[in-house]
Design a protein around this nucleic acid. Structure first.
Lengths: 206, 206
DNA sequence: TAGATTGCCTAGCGGTGCTAGGATCCAAGG
DNA sequence: CCTTGGATCCTAGCACCGCTAGGCAATCTA
């Protein structure tokens, strides 16, 4: 509904978004440790207590940013996966898109999956959104499940992507080999050695 | 050097280890955010400035703990890999040992690979130790490199393990499927789905 | 024993998250 | 018009954080 009751409430909502946007920018530019109540309040030109009128505490702000991130990630993954009818190509595109998003929005990614704040237990509707994101990954890898449990395979793929995302951010991996790592990962995970050629092996034991 | 010069220096070294051990215990029991200078100083029954006589700052303490962890991890990985002459068995054992160490020492693991403190740039001899750890993983996966670059494949494996370790700690993955995830990961990464001969999934239905 | 060195503590700085209490504004009622 | 009630916002402050200056006491050297 585009008319959120009164004008006051609309102004209030706008200010909430201002806080969120500013926190996100601050985190992306200087890291989450630089997002303090005083700095954030200064940046939005309010006093600290105003922040607490919108969010329970500082972690809740990071959680809200994380929620935005999950929504964005879902559409990014869906767009990548459905960019081609070829399952192998879709999987490769999804994996690349995942790592690209993590690289381009490191602070948001950190809020989502690295920070201790449990997004799962944040609010009631959060798990549904997270399940959607998980389902996107599953849809990409499921054609290659063969005899294995698709959900477990999805967890394996997600973990592998998550590991590459975080270790790359921490400059623990050679940045140059980014492309090769993704390609090698999805090639091996999808079960055959030439993923360009399509599905390849379909049944090893009947 | 078993004789560290004077008695004073030996006492000093003992106190350094006391600080390190206490910090590690504190981190494992209550998390790194609970390891503050005041609490740590209280726990070792000294004042805060004493800590700074041994370490440059708080992060340096976490780095020292991380260094201990890498040493431990190297031996754990080596023992696991060489526990069997079978390459596939060795790889599986190494992967399991890696995740087991991460699960049993979450704070140490966090200090090593999650905390922003760059262990690589910590001191001069650190990279060598890290390279040894990396080489251990590479030794386990290299037999399955086929035509692919072994180093890239090692990065892929390590990232995948790291992802499983961190997401498991954050309770983002189902803890029950721990074993299945490792088995599926190394089965697929090692190149084929059924030359594993009973290590992982598959034959548990009879 | 006198002097130098070292080890250690108390006290304090600026910063953090967060909250209480009073001031101020704004919309509705007499 | 003025008054009143409620929402809005800020100043000031608490306890805690990492870290450091300065002084005191114990120890080693001569």
């Amino acid at each position: 509904m585009p008319t959120p009751q009164s004008r006051r409430e609309r102004a209030r909502e706008e200010r909430r978004e201002l806080i969120l946007r500013t926190a996100r920018e601050l985190a992306e530019s200087d890291g989450w440790q630089a997002v303090t109540t005083r700095r954030l309040a200064d940046s939005v030109d309010y006093s600290q207590p105003v922040l607490y009128g919108h969010f329970k505490n500082m972690d809740a702000i990071a959680d809200a940013v994380a929620l935005q991130g999950v929504e964005e990630l879902v559409t990014v993954l869906r767009d990548a996966r459905t960019s081609t009818p070829d399952p192998a190509g879709g999987l490769h595109a999804l994996a690349t898109a995942y790592l690209e998003y993590a690289a381009e929005h490191p602070a948001v990614y950190e809020a989502m999956f690295v920070r201790p704040t449990a997004l799962t237990f944040a609010s009631a509707d959060t798990p549904a959104l997270l399940k959607t994101a998980f389902a996107e990954i599953q849809a990409a890898i499921e054609p290659f499940a063969a005899g294995d449990d698709p959900e477990t395979l999805t967890e394996v793929l997600w973990s592998a992507l998550h590991g590459q995302a975080t270790l790359t951010q921490a400059t623990r991996l050679r940045p140059a080999n980014h492309t090769e790592r993704v390609a090698l990962l999805i090639t091996r995970l999808s079960g055959n050695s030439d993923h360009q050629g399509g599905l390849g092996r379909g049944h090893t034991r009947g």
